[in-house]
Amino acid sequence: MHTSSLSIALVSLFAALIAVFGLIPKIDLPLGVPITLQTLGVMLAGCMLGPKRALQALLLFLAAVALGLPLLSGGRGGLGVFFSPASGYLVGWPVGAFVAGWVMAVLPKHSPRSSAISAFIASAVGGLLVVHVFGVVGLVNIANLSWEQAIMGTLVFVPGDLIKCALCATVVHTVARGLPDWRFGG
């Protein structure tokens, strides 16, 4: 398959994967930001595709959401979601995927084990830290929370996101064993 065709296929596949993760029911919190599995898709895109393709996959996904497709967990979509308390997290997804891909690209990947460890670190930096920084900024600006309230509110997501980092590392380990020529991080 031609490289550009492969890129288009992978970007589309990961945008679709994130949509599929949205079919898993969300857990609503009083903060106005639900717990979803879709951040796992952000982590996987970064680690599996590299920074450029991961960014493209998340931008494609969010463009479809903005057009009104109900791809977010709970069947949400449309421009209104970008003005909700969760908007900072959504805006952070492409940046988080890019950062996860970049971190994955610079870390060692000479064995399935080292690839998995690198994926955990890349997921924690991009899919957790970066996304939560954007989420906190969104909570302060959209939900009118204080910085302290926003930071304390986002901490509720961290244990689940660490589990998602471990799941991402497990997937990367499995792919590294089955497809040793896969270029993690791009």
Rank of each mutant, 00 (worst) to 15 (best):
A169W: 14
H2E: 14
A176L: 05
A63S: 13
A64D: 04
V131D: 01
I24L: 09
V156M: 07
E148A: 14
A116E: 08
L44G: 11
V125R: 02
Y89F: 15
L179V: 15
G68K: 01
G135Y: 05
I8D: 09
P85S: 05
M43F: 05
G88M: 09
L49M: 08
L37I: 11
P85I: 05
L162N: 04
E148G: 12
K164H: 00
G75E: 06
R183A: 12
C47W: 02
H132F: 14
G92A: 11
A116Y: 04
L67D: 14
G138Y: 13
L29I: 03
F120E: 08
S114C: 06
G126Y: 02
V103M: 02
G74E: 11
L59C: 06
P180G: 08
R76N: 11
S4I: 15
P30K: 06
I151D: 07
V20Y: 02
C47V: 03
K52E: 08
F14G: 04
V172H: 00
V140F: 02
P112V: 15
M48V: 06
P94V: 03
G77V: 04
L167K: 11
Q56H: 12
V99K: 06
T3E: 13
G50I: 02
V81R: 00
S123F: 06
I27D: 09
F61S: 03
G135D: 12
A66F: 08
P94N: 01
V11G: 10
L60R: 04
S118M: 00
P25M: 07
A86W: 11
N144D: 14
S146P: 12
L179H: 15
L72S: 04
F83S: 15
I142N: 01
L129T: 15
P30W: 10
A97E: 11
A124G: 07
A143W: 10
G185F: 03
A116G: 06
Y89K: 14
G185D: 04
L59G: 02
V125D: 01
I35P: 03
L10A: 09
S111M: 10
S4E: 14
V158M: 06
C165A: 15
C165V: 11
P85W: 09
L44E: 11
S146D: 10
L55N: 05
L60S: 04
G77L: 02
Q56Y: 15
A15N: 00
L62G: 09
M104S: 00
I18L: 07
L71F: 14
A97F: 08
G92T: 05
